[in-house]
Computed example of a mutant assay.
Amino acid sequence: MLPKVNQMLFYHIASADEEEAAIEYKSRIADEQEDFLLIENPLSEKTGRFKRLFLGDELSVYFTTESGIKNYFDSHVVGFAEDVIRLIKIRKPDPDRITKVQRRNFLRVQAELEIAVRLSDHVRFVCKTDDVGGGGISFLCDGKWSLQSEQMLDCWLLVPFKNGTIEHASFKAEIVRVVEMESGRHQAMIKFASISDSERQKIIRYCFEKQLEYRNR
């Protein structure tokens, strides 16, 4: 399914500036051509300010269907058009490259990211993830750490993006299951118990970028 005229697009703009890259903008689709979408100027709901886009700017975009499914794709600015207002021309996505993500069934990707885990005020450790998703993650750690189902954790995940920026996503999580591996290490599957929308969006954006990377290999 492709986005349609009058539909709202939400997106991040690729930037070496971490604060800028984290801002989510929205634009209405004003018109479409065979290979392009014409969108209105980006507006940040957080600041209430419009953003000027430039030729070649890379966008990480999603739109939501009436059934609540988020559809993600990459695009970039290819030109501008003068109408009653100035419109921005972006590349229309290839339907095969649109990633569908249900709100309650987030995309997961295999990834070795650094994660800091706090079990209590006196027990903390750093390890690597096994996979990452918008609803939870799994990580591998030494068997010496006492982990069990339903245990609550405070976590900080290091999230690198393809534009070179690195951010931290913090959240509280609940252990769903712990598996002891033949090596003696533990694999812990955790789900997010408390995470802000902005922190979750960082993880979803990373998963989206990784999936596109896998497809382009």
Rank of each mutant, 00 (worst) to 15 (best):
Q201H: 12
Q102S: 11
S183V: 00
R185L: 06
E209Q: 14
I166S: 08
K191Q: 13
R185S: 10
G133D: 03
P93M: 06
Q110D: 12
E167W: 15
A111Y: 13
A173Q: 09
D142C: 03
A173K: 03
C141N: 03
C207H: 04
V179C: 09
R91H: 06
R118F: 14
E150D: 15
K191L: 14
F139Q: 05
P160M: 02
C127A: 09
S194Q: 04
I90T: 03
L153W: 05
A188Y: 08
S138K: 08
D197Y: 12
I166N: 07
K191R: 15
K202T: 05
G184K: 04
H122I: 02
I175P: 02
E167H: 15
S149R: 14
T99P: 00
I115C: 02
G143V: 05
V101Y: 07
S170R: 02
S170M: 11
A188F: 06
E180F: 09
I166R: 14
I115W: 13
G143I: 08
K128T: 10
K92N: 08
Q187A: 05
R124D: 08
I115D: 01
S194I: 07
P95A: 04
A193I: 06
G133P: 05
A116T: 06
V101M: 15
I175E: 10
I166Y: 11
I137T: 03
K89V: 15
H122S: 07
F171N: 06
L157Y: 15
S138E: 08
S183R: 04
K100Q: 13
A193P: 10
G135M: 03
T99M: 10
R185V: 04
I203T: 03
F171Q: 01
N163V: 07
K172S: 12
D197I: 01
C155G: 05
P160D: 02
F208W: 00
R200D: 00
D94P: 00
E180K: 14
I175C: 01
G134P: 09
V159W: 07
V179Y: 10
P93L: 00
C141E: 05
C155L: 15
I166Q: 08
R177G: 06
D94R: 12
I175Q: 04
K100P: 05
V178A: 07
I90V: 14
S194P: 00
H186I: 02
V109L: 00
F208C: 04
L119T: 01
K89Q: 06
M181A: 07
E209F: 05
R108F: 00
K191Y: 12
M181Q: 10
Q187L: 08
L147R: 02
I204P: 08
P93S: 01
H186G: 02
T129H: 08
V109R: 07
L140D: 13
N105L: 06
S196D: 14
V159Q: 07
Q148R: 06
R185P: 00
K128A: 06
E182Y: 09
H168Q: 07
H122P: 02
R200C: 05
G184C: 01
D142W: 06
K172A: 14
V126R: 12
W145T: 00
A188E: 06
M152S: 08
M181D: 03
F125G: 03
I203K: 02
L140P: 01
P95E: 12
T99D: 10
I166F: 13
P160L: 05
G135W: 07
G134L: 04
Q201N: 14
G133S: 11
F171G: 00
G133Q: 00
R104G: 14
D154V: 09
K202D: 08
